[in-house]
Amino acid sequence: MIFSIKRSFAIFQKDYKDVSKNLYVTVSVLMPLALAALWGMDGIDNINIHYMLFNMTLCMVAAYVQCCLIAEEKEKNTLRGLMLSPASTMDILVGKSLLSFIATFIILVACAFLQDYKPENLLVISLAMALSTIFYIGLGTVLGLVTKSVMEASVIILPFIGFFSFGSFLTVLAESFPILKVTEYLPNLQLIEIANKVHSGASLSDVWFNLAVIFASIVVIFAIAIVVFRKRMMD
């Protein structure tokens, strides 16, 4: 697959200009910050609570913003213009993801700062957060491609926000319903596991399996995104 940095960057630049005038993006970006500020003031120091907010940020910023950006392109018929241009599938997907990635990174750092969360191993946590962000962007891309409008995208994302933000409750249910044990491999729970291990002094070599699970989720979600994207290239 051919990749052009110039074309991807052009799409990113366009999104950057466009999104700065976009109300739903501003609102969804501010919500995790408000919660982080609130929890920071309360002095909450619990890894699971911190990561519930981080997972929510990943859903609200990485997945939701990405979902809306893609859905809006579909709604306004601008995605077809990109598809008919010489930009490859990779150029478009990378270009469309850059803004969500950067925005998520900034909000995650700001949330950590506001909650006064200082990870014991910044490298491992940064790597886990970066991989998680990519996964959620992939999720947002798929949801944006299957919806027809921003309104529809805003609705379809809600169960995913709930599922991935409060997913740790599923592990409790798994004791009664063993089939739910599979949810332990979800990227949000892997991220919490990494955070707990790091909190107990684990290094990169101790969390490689969890990182590999998140990476595998990325491969799966982007494979789906590429298939759906190519289907959307034609009526």
Binding site: K6, R7, F9, A10, I11, Q13, K14, K17, D18, K21, N22, K76, N77, T78, R80, G81, L82, S85, P86, A87
Partner: peptide
């Protein structure tokens, strides 16, 4: 009929994007 434009951007910015995409 399905050729859309970015409504929040200027005419110039819309065309600039396509200049970059088409070199």
């Amino acid at each position: 009929d399905n050729s859309g434009l970015y409504v929040r951007l200027t005419v110039y910015d819309n065309l600039k994007l396509y200049c970059d995409l088409y070199d």
